[in-house]
Design a binder for these strands. Structure first.
Lengths: 260, 260
DNA sequence: ATTGATATTCCGTAATTCGGAACAATTCAT
DNA sequence: ATGAATTGTTCCGAATTACGGAATATCAAT
């Protein structure tokens, strides 16, 4: 990756402005991106031509419907979603709490499936949301079961910013928690991503015993007290193992993989 | 749009290969796109860097999870989906047929919401799919109620390719059908997009009386015979009017708009 | 080890993008 | 209505950026 197309990267910076703004004018985009008006003008012209942006009657730009098509394709092609959904629904019904499925994307965790407690729920809601891997039970279970080299590299480079009132910001504490999760096979969080929200998560492995995804139950902190945690842990782990099995997981405890 | 960023446009051509292929190697992308290996290599390097593509263990590329995030945002920001969904669900329950909601995107119709007959159904399925505006009841109702200048321009430039066994390929016949739909306020199709599938559609207008979307019930041709059509037409039109009303539609029949 | 296939890097050429500045269009206030 | 201000569009010379053929590296299979 020695040479790269700067134009593409810059254009995406423009598109990413729309993650936090739904409609923008040329001027606003130029200001937010610190690029010259002319350059922005040229780039969004191209982005509009290909369908990544659309210009409405008032001359404001927003994300194009082409993203619906690409988003759908990505969602459809994630086989694990299909397998996991029935198990997730069952877990939700058993425990009466929302259930999330996440995978790793680079240095982040991304939500790829959700079953909510309240009906009717648009499944699509929350899908695509991102979180750092160090915060929250579910992202952190991914981090815990990452290969050691990758995990260490991540821990060395990442800055632990507080997000909720309970976010772990001390690297030593984080290392201890991760180590504990590797031993027990689950992780717990209280108010790490959202205040008063707790979660219990377990890892999902694929046919080669590699970490594939994380599964979690999420709910208000008041319903995640000591008396109920053992049951929650058991059920989440059961569900995660069930999905792993469907992915062809050989069934060995993760710490025994690659030790023969 | 005198000057444009060729690089961006070419890169999207590469991404669009993934609409029909879910995994591709560098080599395959070079062949399918007729671009030099080196250029493809550079571009997909950038596309990977920004998250639009990912490389799996076997060195094959596929669409990145970033599309989930953008797709979600676009879906969330389509207000009409929120309004339409309850009405669509009710229509589905009344008639026992699948219900679709589509909007125009350039010269195509794109499905933005779907309520299926079979449970449990992933709503996301089919969302983002595209169809030409001349084929199928729902796409064609969009075409019928397009402003005359745009409609004529479309009809002059489009080539009517057969898709299903009933696709209209004769321009005069299409014009007659469109004119009829404008008078009656609905459209019917039999085997135009898929063989043995029929549909009945009605237009949805916004607060300015402009065409905003199309609503349709879809099902097997055997259930869309003459005896049942009047009821289907009535129910679809009722539902479409209900959604239009929620969008602030002034309530005038479309042919009276801008005639005062 | 040898072959064949695919991926990656090199590097001189030249086409493309850049961005300031001038210009046009639109909006707003008076 | 008129003028001022704001936003959007076009122009054009400078030079950065992308191009792509060829050489090299990596990998898998025999």
């Amino acid at each position: 990756m020695q040479h790269k197309n700067k134009t593409i990267v810059k254009s995406i910076e423009l598109l990413k402005l729309f993650l936090t703004h739904d409609r923008l004018t040329l001027q606003e985009m130029a200001q937010l991106s610190n690029m010259p008006k002319t350059s922005v003008h040229r780039m969004i012209g191209s982005l509009e031509e290909i369908g990544f942006l659309t210009k409405d009657d008032e001359g404001k730009y927003s994300l194009g419907l082409l993203f619906l098509q690409f988003g759908q394709l990505v969602a459809e092609r994630l086989q694990i979603r299909q397998l996991a959904l029935p198990v997730m629904t069952r877990l939700r019904d058993e425990m009466g709490e929302a259930v999330n499925l996440i995978v790793r994307d680079g240095n982040e965790a991304i939500y790829i499936e959700k079953v909510d407690t309240h009906q009717p729920v648009r499944v699509y809601t929350a899908i695509g949301r991102r979180a750092p891997m160090y915060a929250g039970a579910c992202p952190r279970i991914l981090l815990a079961f990452l290969p050691e080299v990758e995990r260490e590299q991540y821990l060395k480079n990442i800055e632990l910013k507080p997000i909720g009132s309970g976010t772990i910001t001390d690297p030593d504490r984080l290392r201890a928690v991760l180590s504990e999760s590797r031993k027990t096979g689950y992780s717990i969080s209280h108010s790490e991503l959202h205040d008063d929200t707790s979660a219990v998560a377990a890892p999902i492995f694929n046919h080669r015993g590699q970490l594939e995804a994380g599964l979690s139950v999420v709910g208000p902190g008041t319903r995640f007290q000591a008396d109920r945690l053992p049951l929650l842990i058991e059920k989440v782990q059961d569900a995660a193992r069930e999905i792993s099995r469907q992915l062809g997981w050989p069934g060995l405890p993760p710490q025994n993989v690659n030790r023969g």
